[in-house]
Amino acid sequence: MRNIRARTVLLAGGLSLLVLHLCKDFIDLKTTKTISHLHLNVKRNNPQIRQHIKNNSHVFSWQRCQQNMSIANISGFSSLPGSIKDFLYHRHCRHFPMLLDLPDKCGGAGKSADVFLLLVIKSSPGNYDRREVLRKTWAKERLHNGMLIQRLFISGTTSSGFEKKRLNKLLEVEQREYNDILQWDFSDTFYNLTLKQILFLEWMERNCPNARFLLNGDDDVFANTDNMVEYLQSLKDNDGSKHLFTGHLIQNVGPIRSSGSKYFIPVQVQESDSYPPYCGGGGFLLSGYTALVIYNMSQSITILPIDDVYMGMCLAKAGLGPTSHMGVRTAGLHIPSSSVDGYNPCYYKEVLLVHRFLSAHMFLMWHRIHDPNLKCGSS
């Protein structure tokens, strides 16, 4: 009898381990979307758990993605820069724990159609001064022409050790005061900008699927968001439910093969010598419809580290294309003469977006273009 009991215990233990192993594999194979739906269902059904998840956004999170070591076997890998090697090792990684979440930012998925323009601003943790200026200027949450403008900063993590903890704590403090940050636990580097875009689009599909339009841009652009609302309101037969993707159009270009360039893309990352048409990533406008199309297309397109090109690749796969808007100047604004002030507000009053502004210039320009005494004319 004792031997039978012992065998029974061993058999039960073995089955338990097998079940745990199968459960782990099952969870690892699940998509973020499935876990997100579980997340939402739990929140709806239990107020205490809902609050716990809000305070601990890591409850439903992905395990750390492992390097694909086999990538080191590709031809020429050993001669690549470290940043490219790191990108290739982790290129397959698309799921990362969320450190800061705002599931109710748009009023919940069902009410997200109330958001006319969602400002999605790429910002690294250390860029506190930029975020503060934007909150007081063009990214201020408000109504313009009766249309709701909402703001989100999207971020990863930077540095390591105590510095990483301090910067994460900074974002936590900002979150408590402003409720405007989404943060994932991935390294916020240039080569991970595409990952940042995909993670945001995944979040949008879950929490803000019906937002009408989006401005997607950097935290160093000057954006005349009043003009953007007026432009978007003027569109005929498009309330955000049809295709729109417009900005500074770039076409007939391909990967830069020079290793000294910030935008270096070796053949190990992309063999093709051409890119599809795309809009400069400093800032572009798109409809909510197009944002979700891009997200769906991204599921079957290998990540390219140049995020604006990757958006163009997703559009091309969907049979859609970007368009040019003369009011979007991601390459900067051309001032006709060096004898005039390059920051004269009359040059900026009618544009939609200009890339690369210092925080002080941003603050001043916003107030100058809204000065009721500002006079602009041929004189």
Rank of each mutant, 00 (worst) to 15 (best):
residue 1 M to A: 12
residue 2 R to H: 07
residue 4 I to A: 12
residue 6 A to I: 15
residue 16 S to A: 13
residue 16 S to M: 10
residue 16 S to C: 13
residue 21 H to F: 04
residue 21 H to A: 10
residue 21 H to T: 12
residue 29 L to M: 04
residue 29 L to D: 06
residue 30 K to N: 11
residue 42 V to A: 09
residue 43 K to F: 00
residue 47 P to V: 11
residue 48 Q to C: 04
residue 56 N to P: 01
residue 60 F to T: 09
residue 67 Q to I: 08
residue 69 M to V: 14
residue 77 F to S: 08
residue 81 P to F: 09
residue 82 G to E: 13
residue 85 K to G: 05
residue 86 D to P: 08
residue 86 D to L: 15
residue 95 H to N: 10
residue 99 L to Q: 06
residue 105 K to P: 00
residue 109 A to V: 11
residue 112 S to Y: 06
residue 114 D to P: 01
residue 117 L to Q: 05
residue 117 L to T: 08
residue 123 S to C: 03
residue 123 S to V: 04
residue 125 P to C: 01
residue 128 Y to G: 09
residue 132 E to H: 06
residue 132 E to Q: 11
residue 134 L to N: 11
residue 135 R to S: 00
residue 136 K to V: 00
residue 136 K to H: 07
residue 143 L to T: 10
residue 152 L to C: 07
residue 157 T to C: 07
residue 164 K to H: 03
residue 172 E to H: 08
residue 173 V to H: 04
residue 174 E to D: 11
residue 176 R to V: 06
residue 179 N to Y: 02
residue 181 I to Y: 09
residue 189 T to L: 01
residue 190 F to P: 01
residue 191 Y to S: 12
residue 194 T to A: 03
residue 195 L to W: 03
residue 199 L to V: 13
residue 200 F to R: 06
residue 202 E to M: 05
residue 209 P to Y: 04
residue 211 A to M: 02
residue 214 L to F: 10
residue 215 L to M: 06
residue 216 N to C: 03
residue 224 N to W: 03
residue 225 T to M: 02
residue 227 N to W: 01
residue 229 V to H: 02
residue 230 E to R: 13
residue 232 L to V: 06
residue 237 D to W: 02
residue 238 N to R: 08
residue 239 D to W: 00
residue 241 S to R: 13
residue 243 H to E: 10
residue 250 I to W: 00
residue 250 I to K: 12
residue 260 G to D: 08
residue 261 S to D: 14
residue 273 D to E: 11
residue 273 D to G: 15
residue 279 C to M: 05
residue 284 F to M: 11
residue 285 L to Y: 07
residue 285 L to M: 08
residue 286 L to D: 03
residue 286 L to V: 04
residue 294 I to H: 00
residue 295 Y to E: 15
residue 300 S to D: 07
residue 301 I to T: 09
residue 308 D to R: 12
residue 309 V to T: 09
residue 317 K to M: 00
residue 321 G to F: 06
residue 330 T to L: 00
residue 338 S to F: 01
residue 339 S to P: 00
residue 340 V to I: 13
residue 342 G to W: 02
residue 342 G to A: 12
residue 349 K to V: 05
residue 351 V to R: 11
residue 356 R to H: 09
residue 363 F to M: 11
residue 364 L to W: 09
residue 364 L to Q: 14
residue 367 H to A: 09
residue 371 D to S: 02
residue 372 P to K: 10
residue 376 C to S: 04
residue 378 S to G: 02
residue 379 S to A: 07
residue 379 S to C: 02
